[in-house]
Structures are given as C-alpha cells and as structure tokens.
Design a protein around this nucleic acid. Structure first.
Lengths: 143, 143
DNA sequence: CTCAGTGCAAAGTCTTTGCACTCGT
DNA sequence: ACGAGTGCAAAGACTTTGCACTGAG
C-alpha cells in the first residue's frame, strides 16, 4: 500500500482521498470490477465521488501499472489490483467472474521465435484463461 | 467462401446481400476492422446498409465462429475473418494495426496443469501478442 | 498560495432496439 | 406468402470533457 502511494508520488501525481478510496476498493476486491462497480463501492466510503473521478483514477492507476485492465466478454473493461509484481495472468470464471492468478506462462520462447520470424518488436502479450470454477460447473452459475 | 455460406445456412440463418458484403469486406481486409470501418467499406458496395445491420452481422458471424473478435487497446472491438480453422492467435502491431497469424501457442500443457490445480474447467484462452512491426519500429507509426 | 484534482452536468462515442417495410427461402 | 432480416431513427450504455471550485503539497 505504501509502495503504491510512493509510486503515485514519484510520478508527481497527488494522493487524494478519492484515489485512495479506489485503491482500497480494488485491494479489497477478489474479482475484477467494472468502473460502475468501483464507483458504487467507493461511494460507500466517499458518497460525493463522481463517476468521472473513478474513470480518471482508473486511467491513472493503469497508466502507472498499479492495476490491470482485463478484457472480459460481456462487460468489456474490468480492473484488478496488481498484487504481484512478477509476470502473471488470470484465469477467469465465466460463471461467477472469480479470478485466479496464474504465474508464468511459458510464452517466452514462442515470443522470441515470433519476433525472429516476423521482425516485430514484441512488447507484451494479453493472455487470459476462460473457464468455469468448481461451483459454477455444478450448475450454480449457469448464465 | 462457400463453406462459410453453408455454415450460415446450416444454422438456419439467411444469406443476405448485407451479410455477404460484410464477409467480403472482412475477407479482403488484411488488418482487423472496427464496426465503423466495416460499415464504411460495406457502403462502397451497398450504400444503403445501416450501421445496425453491420453490428447484427458481426454478432451473428462471431456467434457462428466465422470471425474473431479482437480486444485491442484503443478502439476496443475489431473483427477479423477466421482464415484458418486450426487453433491460432494474433500478433498485432500497435503502430499500424497490422495482424500476423500465429499458429499454436504451446499452452496446452499449462492449461491442463491449471485445470488440475484449480478445479476449473478451462474452455478457452484469449491470447494476443502486442508489438511493433518493422516499419513502425522505424518510427513511421509512432502514435 | 497554487495548480492538480474534483464534482457536476453536458457532450461524445459506441452499440442496441423498436417498428414498419423488404426480400430470401 | 411468411417471417427473418433490414434501414432508419431513437434510445441506451459507457466514457470523456468543460468549467468553476476545492484541497494536497
């Protein structure tokens, strides 16, 4: 938490109660949240907070690499606090939305090959696994 | 092309000039197109075509698995004809948007491990490589 | 004290929907 | 001929922006 704040300060942005509230909400969340959900949860804390501020905060935090932006099927954008600094991905349950962290992906080699073959400078990759958790397989979350 | 049409027919949907036009545009495209781009290109062929029809066609074709939906950074949704029936992914240039097909990804093993560890039934994964093509590395597409 | 950050409301985008008409089958 | 599919325009969702005010540094 303190590291996060110092990262914000380092980049010459201010630490405002609103930004803290957004971070708090995201750090308490187990599953990724949409901007609207973040807004609702932030309002429990700071009722006056506007939607625009939530968007601006999410944008800032994503820019600083403090949170991840996920692309899910229906509700396209969802955000998640980056808990681990290492390279990782997410396994997302399509039933209930729960997220599991996945360490490593073994794509280093394929990335290097691709780069060699195509001449692309490959910056990153977007990888998400989509499935159904144990509960949702039992038909609970059948959407 | 004929296989595509039969796939549409199989699912009891009609083959309309508009759907054909959307398919034609996508099959002629080298890079993935946004709905708006598809619309513009379709209009060159059938000027009366409405935006709504383009959306409905894209949705239908994606549902039938005939086209891929990509999640890119800025303009979130873009569509691409599925040229190859095998499992594949895309390498996308963040400068000019050009797309390279990537065969295989070596994620079978990691998927199986994940499934075992987490109890998830993993249906699929979303994988895209993001980089800059040779031209854009030369600074041409510096956005 | 200053200016980045905020809240609000208005303006943009992007996407979907309702409805009468058209046209593939 | 029948009903899926269409075009249009309006509605809806989501996101950004302008502007005066507030408060973090």
């Amino acid at each position: 938490m303190t590291t996060i704040q110092s990262r914000i300060r380092q980049n010459k942005y201010k630490i405002t109660p609103q930004r803290q509230a957004v971070l708090k909400v995201l750090s308490a969340a187990i599953q990724p949240l949409s901007p609207a959900e973040v807004h609702k949860l932030v309002q429990a804390d700071k009722p006056a907070t506007g939607m625009a501020t939530v968007y601006r905060s999410l944008q800032l935090l994503a820019e600083l690499g403090l949170i991840c932006e996920l692309h899910t099927a229906g509700n396209c954008h969802r955000y998640l606090l980056k808990r681990i600094d290492s390279h990782h991905h997410h396994l997302i349950c399509s039933g209930c939305g729960q997220v599991v962290h996945v360490e490593g992906c073994g794509l280093k080699e394929i990335t290097e090959n691709l780069s060699r073959q195509t001449g692309f400078a490959i910056d990153t990759h977007l990888l998400e696994f989509i499935g159904r958790c144990r509960n949702c397989q039992k038909g609970i979350g059948k959407v």
